[in-house]
Amino acid sequence: MANLKQAARRIIEELYGEGRVEVLDELCHPGYVSHDPLVGDADLAGVKAYVRLLRACFPNLEVRIHGLYVDGETAITWWSMEGNLARRLLDVEPRGQRVHMEGMTISEFENGKLVEDSSQWDTFGYLQQLGLAQPLEPKARELYEQQGLVI
C-alpha cells in the first residue's frame, strides 16, 4: 500500500509539479492509458506531451495533494494546481491570469505499475478562468423565474 501511495503522490508532485515526464516510464505499465475530461484519452506519449504543454503554459505551476487514499490496487488522489498563464493556450493570450484547478484522480495499478487513471476536475471553472466559458447563472435564473421557481 505504501508503494502505491508513494507512486500516486509522485505522479502529482513530480510529473505535474516539477514537469518530470520520465517518472511515467518508471511508474507506468507500457500500455498505460489516462482519461481526462479536457484532453480525452491518452497513452504515455500523449500524457507526456500534455504535461510539457501545461508546464510551458504555467511554468510556476504549484501542486498540492489534499488527500490520498489507497484500497487494494486503487489509489484516489484529491489534488489542486495553480499557476499564472505565461504562454498562449486554447487561443487565450497570456495576461498573467492566475488559474486554479482542483480535482480527483482514480489510479488503477497492477503489480505495482500504473495501468490506467481517470481524472475528474473542474474543467468548466478552468475554462471560465481562461475566459473561454461564461457562467450559466444569469440564464439559469431567468429560466427558473419563467417557470415560477426561485433560486
Rank of each mutant, 00 (worst) to 15 (best):
E145R: 14
E26Y: 03
H66E: 14
V33R: 12
I12T: 07
V47E: 10
G83K: 05
L68W: 06
Q97Y: 06
F124P: 02
L89D: 10
E137G: 01
E18I: 02
L15H: 08
V150Y: 00
R55A: 10
R87N: 02
G112R: 12
V115K: 09
L127F: 13
I65F: 06
G17T: 07
N111Y: 03
R10A: 15
L53V: 13
E145Y: 01
G46C: 12
V39I: 11
A56D: 14
I106K: 06
I151E: 03
Q97A: 10
P138Y: 06
L38F: 08
G112V: 12
F109V: 05
G72D: 14
G112D: 13
W121K: 03
L4E: 13
G72P: 13
A2K: 11
Y32D: 09
A49S: 14
S80W: 00
V63L: 06
E137A: 07
T74V: 15
G40I: 01
Q129M: 08
I76P: 06
L61E: 11
Y126E: 04
L90G: 00
G131D: 09
C28Q: 01
R95Y: 00
E14C: 08
D36C: 06
L130S: 03
A133P: 02
P59I: 02
L27N: 01
Y69Q: 11
Q129H: 10
E82C: 04
Q134I: 07
A75V: 03
D41C: 01
N60E: 10
M101I: 13
D117S: 08
M104D: 05
V150C: 01
S107Q: 15
Q120I: 08
D25Y: 03
L127N: 05
R52C: 02
R9P: 03
M81D: 04
K113M: 03
A86D: 15
G112N: 14
R20P: 00
G125V: 04
R87C: 02
E142P: 03
Q146A: 06
D71T: 15
G131L: 05
Q146W: 00
V47Q: 07
N84L: 04
P135A: 10
A133K: 05
I65L: 12
R52P: 04
R141Q: 12
L132T: 05
H66A: 11
P59W: 08
Y69C: 03
A140T: 09
L27A: 00
D36W: 02
E22Q: 08
Q120C: 06
Y50V: 09
G112F: 12
L114I: 09
R98D: 00
K139I: 14
Q147Y: 08
D43S: 05
A133G: 01
E62P: 00
A49M: 05
A86E: 15
I65K: 10
F58Y: 15
A49Q: 13
Q128I: 07
E93Q: 13
D36V: 05
I151K: 03
D25S: 02
